[in-house]
């Protein structure tokens, strides 16, 4: 019987290793997906209804799949496995944008975070499908169909909460205002992007497409885009969102308490 490495699961062994710059970019996207997945899992058994437990767990599972592919690819640059990258990096070494690290809050906060995250990821993976890097293009072509479904889910709940009761609409407005400062960071270019022409998607180039989608949803939901100052951000440069350390502590504790454990 052939022994199979878990780490070798999602990509052919013949995939070319990532360069340092490509690995850095794969970490951006992989860390976004990993942290979002970890956060969404916390809704299981706590969502407003059973169907939402299932929905959010399904979305988390898709995000975990994307994270595994991306982290595995990032690790080929220096011989680290997806588990090394997920469980043995500290917050300063993560590259997730702050939006993905925002606390779950109430259900409206989670839905607004999902609306922005999925709209961003859909535009990003749509464009990344034509990357000159075959591995990134393959991961994106797979992921884009899944995040489109996540976007549908968030749009439906946005319409429902905004057009529901006075209380659901009030909470939606609070969640929008609290989340909006973290939107700008998603579209900021960093120096590594200049070195990845044709391989990475320039974040600033996605803004118009994401705005178009969000504006259509806001019009339908009779919501206004909040006017709030953007946060400093810095997740891509290793300036972690304050709560990231606590998120990682919970995610990593088992792997660190029992190095090499499998389950």
């Amino acid at each position: 019987m052939v022994e199979h490495e878990l780490a070798a699961e999602l990509l052919g062994d013949d995939a070319a290793p990532a360069s340092r710059d490509v690995a850095e970019y794969a970490l951006w996207l992989g860390d976004d997906a990993l942290i979002l997945s970890q956060q969404l899992m916390q809704w299981v058994a706590r969502a407003p209804e059973l169907e939402e437990d299932v929905a959010l767990a399904n979305i988390a599972l898709d995000q975990l799949g994307h994270a595994r592919s991306l982290l595995r690819y990032a690790g080929t640059a220096d011989g680290r496995s997806e588990d090394d990258l997920a469980f043995w990096r500290d917050d300063l070494q993560f590259r997730a944008a702050w939006l993905f690290c925002l606390p779950n809050g109430d259900f409206a906060h989670t839905i607004v975070r999902q609306l922005v995250a999925a709209s961003f990821q859909f535009a990003l993976y749509s464009a990344l499908q034509s990357s000159a890097d075959a591995t990134l293009a393959a991961i994106a072509a797979k992921a884009v169909k899944e995040v489109e479904y996540h976007r549908d889910h968030a749009v439906q709940w946005t319409l429902r909460l905004a057009g529901g009761t006075d209380e659901s609409r009030r909470r939606m407005l609070v969640a929008l205002r609290d989340t909006w400062p973290y939107v700008d960071e998603l579209f900021r270019d960093e120096p590594v992007i200049d070195r990845l022409e044709g391989i990475a998607v320039r974040p600033s180039a996605l803004r118009a497409e994401v705005d178009r989608v969000l504006d259509a949803v806001f019009t339908e939901a009779e919501l206004d885009r909040p006017e709030v100052a953007p946060s400093s951000g810095g997740g891509r440069r290793g300036i972690p969102f304050p709560a990231l350390g606590a998120i990682l502590a919970e995610m990593q504790v088992l792997a660190r308490a029992h190095p090499g454990v499998t389950w």
């Binding site: 592919s69 293009a137 393959a138 072509a141 797979k142």
Partner: peptide, 9 residues
Amino acid sequence: DVRLTLAPA
């Protein structure tokens, strides 16, 4: 040998 490929999706 079992290989996994993501493309085409």
